[in-house]
Design a protein around this nucleic acid. Structure first.
Lengths: 219, 219
DNA sequence: CCGGAAATGGGTGCTGCCACGGATGCCACC
DNA sequence: GGTGGCATCCGTGGCAGCACCCATTTCCGG
């Protein structure tokens, strides 16, 4: 590796402790340097405006703006910035969503520090780096489906559907949701049914888990 | 502070990345040294047997054995070992449960690294250290209730109830749970009703969130 | 030994969840 | 200028979730 300027990193995670730890890991590498820290998605976007960022390392679940949402916006605004999503969950759904959101990489928090550093370097080099364990298979599957022109998973929910899911996961009844959104109960149930079908789920408890994974709500 | 031998710490968290980061934070203090790392509660207990541990820093949500469960067992087996629980969630319920489980301290992952270090030191000195932000008030309330001899919150669920909650949160129907536990549907509903009343909740979606916070299930 | 909590089972009844049909208007993309 | 996704709404119906009543047995601690 040539001795060029180190990669400037924006680090976003809602847990200060985790942020601090990850920063220590990254800063100990000579070619990586964290130049900004954010505690949520909105703050991350704001910081990305005022700093020159090469790479954004975003936690998927954050208050205000999800890492996924921030990634979408960031990749729209400055496509040159590489994005690496940090996730607690080894979940197909989210992995695919991350790719669609413009992320170049997706790393589980269960990986070792070495892997994170390697992932950062690979993403910066714009290389399709090797994902830890099971994700390699998922990646291959995704690319195959894309090649075959199939409808890709991870297309997920419309804005309205996400809104309904969020309220369901908060424990609201269909009637309450209808009142809040000023639509009929029937429409709420229609949205719920559509979402359940899309995600291949059966009831509200599974939707709740989904919403938490997605960062739509806090547990 | 006198220059004595450093505090020997057992660190348990299911996310290797977080574990690594926290370890870097702790090890950078001369009076603190991490002598063992565990990826789940059961491993933590096993390591506590073979290492001389002054302090155990446990994540509340871990596979196999929850941090809470591990804390209970650990404080029973070796009461001299101090316990500090690390949590993602600022939640009364869990804070109280942590105290009951024998923990000397409860720290949110949203705190800064300085606070974690101070919490470790305070716990080792057996001092009632100042909890970050809102927890001070909670602590005071808890002590007041204890003084008045009131029924303490955090008594929480029986083993059987926790089992039912876990299955509910996994999306199982009452019928399925009844079959799995080889009891009648009525009993399952009885348990569910009791739990809902205890936790002051209304439906299964809220139970699901509770189960996730508790580390009973993975999201 | 007695009181209480935990676990088990039952009955009754309402309401909301969820599945299955159908329909309409809108808007974007090809 | 279709075609398809999105959002909106409607009816019908079954079963499950949840509330509120009841009971029994066991077991533990004061």
């Amino acid at each position: 590796m040539t001795a060029s300027a180190p990669t400037r990193i924006l680090l976003a995670d809602d847990h200060a402790l985790v942020r601090r730890g990850v920063r220590l890991i990254l800063d100990s590498e000579p070619d990586l340097t964290v130049v900004a820290e954010a505690g949520d998605g909105a703050e991350a976007l704001a910081l990305a405006r005022v700093h020159a960022i090469d790479l954004a390392v975003l936690d998927v679940a954050m208050p205000r703006l999800t890492g996924l949402q921030a990634a979408r916006e960031l990749s729209r605004r400055s496509p040159a910035t590489r994005i690496l999503l940090l996730s607690m969950y080894d979940n197909d759904q989210y992995f695919f969503e991350a790719l669609r959101a413009g992320a170049s990489g997706y790393v589980l928090k269960s990986v070792a520090d070495r892997d994170l550093v390697e992932a950062c370097r690979a993403v910066v080099r714009e290389e399709p780096f090797i994902y830890p364990d099971a994700l390699t298979a998922l990646m291959r599957e995704y690319l195959q489906r894309a090649a075959r022109g199939e409808r890709l998973p991870g297309s997920v929910l419309s804005a309205r559907e996400a809104e309904v899911v969020k309220l369901i996961a908060e424990g609201r009844s269909s009637q309450e949701i209808a009142d809040l959104l000023v639509i009929s109960v029937k429409t709420v149930e229609r949205h719920r049914a559509n979402v359940l079908a899309k995600l291949e789920m059966r009831d509200r408890t599974q939707l709740t888990r989904y919403a938490i994974r997605a960062g739509l709500i806090e547990p």
